[in-house]
């Protein structure tokens, strides 16, 4: 649902302004630890999230982070109680990959593997949400969050959390506005709109072009920004856009996503990789 008039379709946001006080990101890794009876995969997964606070242009881990969780992911009902009991002897957290009420019948191993990976991802998101909530409840500076913020109940309603989505598997655009998005010039944003995901919080969002796409694909340097719906105003959208634009330097090369990835987010990932 649009929040602004479609005319003009694009707006110049002004000169970049440095404002973010910290960056939040998480990473995950998983691999099959054991193949149980009938090829049921038991997945070992590690998830981690960190807030890197910026002070005097240098990033440091925010107290309370990183959060790291090692766990085994398995369909308890399928591997059986004895196997679950044996896994518990390792002292590592166990996560059931089956939803409550799922039938405990044999399934395709790849399906079970996908269930495990989804569980790993949920845990990673959970850690990110925990950190985002903690930041918004205790700090006063804006937080640059990698990805959407609608999954965090409190943070998504805070003025401090700004979600920046780099991937565009889902494009929030009508056939008419798609051309506007792909033709967006550097430093311009689209009109804002509301996103109302199922089971998540409604947020305000818009597209912003960080880098010149000429000679590249149409989504090069394009991000989608999310802020709390209640905090939205056109001026605030411009203001937040200026903050995001300021994070284009330094570039995040050699990461392949460098056109849309803030250096602070890359720093979070490098930091977490060093810890896993």
């Amino acid at each position: 649902m649009p929040l602004e008039s479609a005319a003009p379709a694009v707006r110049a946001v002004g000169e970049p302004t440095v404002k973010f006080g910290a960056f939040l990101d998480g990473i995950q890794s998983s691999h099959t630890e054991y193949n149980g009876r009938n090829g049921v995969p038991i997945v070992g997964g590690t998830v981690a999230a960190v807030i890197r606070r910026r002070a005097d242009r240098v990033l440091h881990a925010w107290p309370g982070s990183p959060k790291i969780l090692h766990a085994f992911y398995a369909p308890f009902a399928i591997i059986g109680e004895s196997a679950v009991a044996w896994l518990r002897t390792g002292g590592i957290e166990l996560v059931d990959t089956l939803e409550r009420g799922d039938p405990p019948e044999a399934r395709h191993p790849m399906e079970l593997l996908a269930l495990a990976r989804n569980a790993v991802q949920r845990n990673r998101e959970r850690l990110e949400v925990e950190l985002a909530e903690a930041w918004c409840s205790s700090e006063a500076e804006p937080l640059f969050v990698d990805g959407g913020i609608s999954g965090a109940r409190n943070a998504s309603q805070s003025e401090l959390a700004v979600g920046v989505v780099k991937s565009h598997r889902t494009l929030y655009a009508t056939p008419e506005s798609l051309g506007v998005i792909t033709a967006l010039a550097v430093g311009m944003r689209t009109a804002s709109f509301e996103i109302r995901p199922k089971h998540r919080t409604t947020v305000a969002s818009w597209y912003l072009r960080l880098r010149d796409p000429r000679g590249r694909d149409p989504l090069f340097g394009l991000v989608r920004v999310e802020i709390a719906r209640d905090s939205w105003s056109a001026d605030r959208a411009d203001q937040v856009s200026r903050w995001v634009l300021a994070e284009r330097a330094p570039v995040s090369l050699p990461d392949k996503r460098w056109s849309t990835m803030a250096y602070g987010i890359r720093d979070c990932e490098e930091y977490l990789r060093a810890h896993l």
Binding site: F20, V58, R248, D267, E270
Partner: peptide, 22 residues
Amino acid sequence: LHEVLGYDGAPGGEAGAPTKRT
């Protein structure tokens, strides 16, 4: 070259970089 790209070839842009590289 990555640094050149990052600052659009303008060394004076350094002061604007909000974060120091690791």
